[in-house]
């Protein structure tokens, strides 16, 4: 597979995945951009992987989890010019986000927990594959999911009472 072929089919799903991780289209674009630049520069290594797609997803997830430690967040924050590639979210979408409580609760979760939720309930991946992507044990994935769900449930209870 060439990089071009990979990008043709996989860029859109990766971008959607990044939106679910970050909850924000701008940050999702930056996350995917930074990851895919590295993918392109190191394509031979990526192509050698059993599943290039999973390899890239792992790169992207690690980049997201390492957010604060890495430098790309800082670059994003310091960048002066607005990215013209990003369409401004429409009012409709924005207000939908505001109304969407569960979406906003997600942003309070630790990043690894959020990533497990996205991989489980958006990408519908089995625990073993999630563990592979996050580089942890299957048990860790399960406990991470149940802890994240417990946090969300607590928010529910609080909001309803």
């Amino acid at each position: 597979m060439t990089y071009e072929e990979f990008a043709d089919t996989r860029l859109a799903p990766l971008l959607r995945y990044a939106v679910m991780l970050t909850g924000d289209p701008h940050q999702a674009q930056d996350l995917v951009q930074e990851t895919m630049v590295r993918v392109q520069l190191n394509w031979r290594r990526v192509a050698r992987a059993d599943s290039p797609e999973r390899y890239v997803r792992r790169m992207l997830t690690n980049q997201y989890v390492d957010w604060r430690r890495g430098s790309w967040m800082r670059r994003v924050l310091l960048r002066g010019e607005p990215d013209e590639a990003v369409p401004a979210p429409t009012d409709h979408a924005q207000s939908a986000v505001d109304r969407d409580q569960i979406w906003s609760w997600l942003s309070r979760l630790p990043r690894r927990q959020r990533a497990t939720l996205v991989l489980r309930y958006y990408e519908d991946l089995p625990d073993a594959e999630i563990a592979d992507i996050l580089g942890c044990a299957v048990g860790t994935v399960r406990s991470s999911i149940s802890r994240a769900l417990a946090t969300l449930r607590a928010e529910y209870v609080e909001a309803c009472s």
Partner: peptide, 25 residues
């Protein structure tokens, strides 16, 4: 879990187009 799935699906519309991103990459 169902609410989560629904929330994720609802927010797919936030995804920006890939064309300009691909060029930037």
């Amino acid at each position: 879990e169902d609410d989560l799935r629904a929330a994720f699906t609802r927010h797919e519309q936030l995804t920006p187009p890939t064309g300009p991103l691909r060029a930037a990459i």
